[in-house]
Nucleic acid binder design. Structure first.
Length: 586
DNA sequence: GAGTTTGAAACT
DNA sequence: CAGTTTCAAACTC
């Protein structure tokens, strides 16, 4: 069924998109809304772009609105963007639902929309609005910038048929709040290096722009936008009796007690492990902007002044995570290395100490190098091949020859560019916006490049992106298949190398696991005490590892020193140069 | 599935 | 800007 078809919606007062009719229809059911719309319509001063024409296609309209109102806003979480840009055909705003997602409606229709979260298809939200006509922010679809489609709403105007009314509503909403359609959740601008993903949390860094105002839910129910977005309450919040802070017993109990969350928890713990593996400890320092509501008591429970209470909480919490840990009856739930008491079971990533930041840089360098070399090698090969065929009667090969020559130039550019250190995060400015000038990216890649502004990510991505950019300043699509092959080869090699790297990491982790298991087992035997850490039962057969439990695992630096080994062989450069010389000779 | 609770959005 | 009302989602039974 199509968008806004009668099956899903009650009979509309307006079946056409006639503006006047739509406006009239709006007047019928709710004068408030009519007034609201008149208010904006008469204003005419709504700072909406002139491109916002009634004749605009929905998507166009949305892009226009989006561009006007969402210029520099922090990007929403990636999955949302992916969902919107790749899947949803009725994308209305590029920053749709940073509004917190809504779980599947129990009344889900037979043909639900889908969105992708973490590459997992998921039903799109479906509203149940009755009185708002889906033209107010009450409506999650409207707020997310999407048309209602397959929703259970009544008297819905958030569809193509009522585009005029909808547009007015958008204007009205924007007039009230220019940021109404902007993401509610923003990544912390300072969290890039302080990033830590606590077990049971996904978006620790993210922060609700406006903050919640919860009073009774303790911010531990989905009434709370922060909780629903899976982020901690921040200093932006004005909530009361908040339990959605780092170290909260209730919060941890919530995550740990619910068996349904176990899988999620494990996955997130794995994320934490991976994240924590970068650096010297499993968990890095606590986040800087987390409050501790329990300490509001010290400032007075009615303290609503953020400048006092929040900051106080914040400061207190930042300086001493230990108290919260000591308050927590849940051992090992999540502890920083500095907060672990002797009786606590400390979780430490099996990858701790293995990967160091410089290793990532090395990895990036290698990937860039390999990619450039692959491009050069491939184009050289093609060139040689073409050179040979050039001698033959020129027929259909002419075009392919023309393809390859510029490609060769690009390859050269790449190789030279690769000699420059492109690891610098400063180069991260080459985001998706540059993509049109550079290498055509897959939608997914493009989405990644566009939406992920995490400096760390960009530091990783930028080399490839900048390389692609640097390599394609002179040519692009016109050269078609030839470069496509090169890109494919580059991608293949880079991914292969990255896979190899990950395999190494996994191997190192497994070694650590084995040793930890042995240690746990030995302690178990010696102390006859239960080991809480799940690693304890990992392998009882690995007793041959006993005796080496105190030895340090070979640091990743060792294997990373073989980062160069990620390169197929060190002779590749020479090889490439040799081929280059051959070409010059030709 | 109906009724209640909750907090954001809208309104005064 | 604070207080109130409206609204729809979340939640409970």
């Amino acid at each position: 069924m199509g968008e806004g078809e009668g099956v899903d919606y009650p009979p509309k007062n307006v079946s056409s998109s006639d503006d006047a009719a739509a406006a009239a229809a709006l007047d019928v059911p709710a004068k408030k809304l009519a007034r609201q719309l008149d208010f904006t319509g008469s204003g005419g001063a709504v700072p909406l772009p002139e491109q916002l024409q009634p004749q605009s296609q929905p998507q166009q309209l949305q892009h226009v609105v989006a561009q006007s109102q969402l210029p520099l806003q922090p990007q929403p979480p990636l999955p949302q963007t992916l969902a919107q840009s790749v899947i949803s055909p009725q994308v209305l705003l590029p920053h749709p639902s940073v509004r917190v997602g809504k779980p599947d409606s129990p009344k889900a229709k037979s043909r639900p929309n889908f969105e992708i979260k973490d590459c997992t298809p998921k039903k799109q939200k479906q509203c149940n609005c009755k009185h708002s006509k889906c033209l107010k922010l009450y409506c999650e679809c409207f707020a997310s910038g999407i048309y209602c489609d397959g929703c259970n709403c009544v008297n819905c105007y958030n569809n193509v048929e009522n585009e005029a009314a909808r547009r007015e509503a958008v204007e009205a909403t924007l007039e009230r709040n220019p940021n109404a359609f902007r993401p509610k959740i923003a990544s912390s601008p300072h969290g890039a290096r302080g990033r830590r993903e606590e077990a049971g949390e996904v978006l620790i860094l993210a922060k609700h722009n406006k903050g919640c105002h919860c009073k009774k839910s303790g911010c531990l129910k989905k009434y709370c936008e922060c909780f629903q977005a899976n982020i901690l309450c921040s200093e932006n919040c004005k909530c009361m009796d908040c339990k959605n802070f780092e170290g909260s017993e209730e919060r941890q109990a919530l995550f740990h007690g619910d068996q349904n969350n176990n899988i999620v928890y494990m996955q997130q713990a794995a994320n934490a492990a991976i994240t924590g593996a970068i650096g010297s400890s499993g968990f890095s320092s606590p986040p800087l902007s987390k409050k501790r509501k329990g300490q509001e008591l010290y400032f007075g429970p009615t303290t609503k002044d953020p400048s006092v209470g929040r900051l106080g909480q914040q400061a207190n919490h930042v300086r001493s995570p230990a108290p919260s840990s000591s308050l927590s009856p849940i051992p090992g739930a999540r502890v920083g290395t500095s907060t672990v008491g002797p009786s606590k079971v400390m979780y430490r990533s099996l990858l701790a100490d293995i990967i160091q930041p410089q290793h990532l840089k090395e990895l990036c360098s290698v990937l860039v190098l390999v990619s450039g070399q692959a491009a050069k090698t491939l184009t050289d090969q093609k060139n040689l091949k073409d050179k040979h065929t050039e001698d033959l009667p020129e027929t259909s090969h002419a075009s392919s020859t023309q393809e390859q020559l510029p490609s060769q130039k690009e390859a050269d550019d790449c190789s030279s560019a690769n000699q420059i250190d492109k690891i610098s995060p400063d180069n991260s400015s080459s985001d998706g916006a540059d993509a049109p000038k550079g290498r055509p990216m897959s939608p997914g890649t493009l989405a990644l490049m566009c939406d992920e502004q995490d400096p760390m990510f960009m530091a990783t991505a930028s080399p490839i992106a900048s390389m692609a950019h640097a390599c394609n300043t002179t040519s692009q699509l016109p050269y078609g298949q030839g470069m496509t092959d090169v890109y494919a080869e580059q991608e293949r090699i880079v991914l292969t190398k990255f896979r190899d790297f990950l395999n190494r990491v996994i191997t190192m982790g497994e070694i650590n696991e084995t040793k930890c298991s042995s240690l746990a087992r030995s302690e178990l035997e010696s102390q006859n005490e239960p080991i809480i850490n799940g690693a304890g039962n990992a392998s009882a057969e690995t007793t041959q590892q006993e005796g080496a439990t105190t030895s340090t695992v070979p640091p990743m630096a060792t294997s990373m020193s073989t980062t160069s080994s990620l390169v197929p062989n060190n002779g590749v450069p020479e090889n490439g140069e040799a081929k280059l010389e051959v070409e010059k000779d030709i």
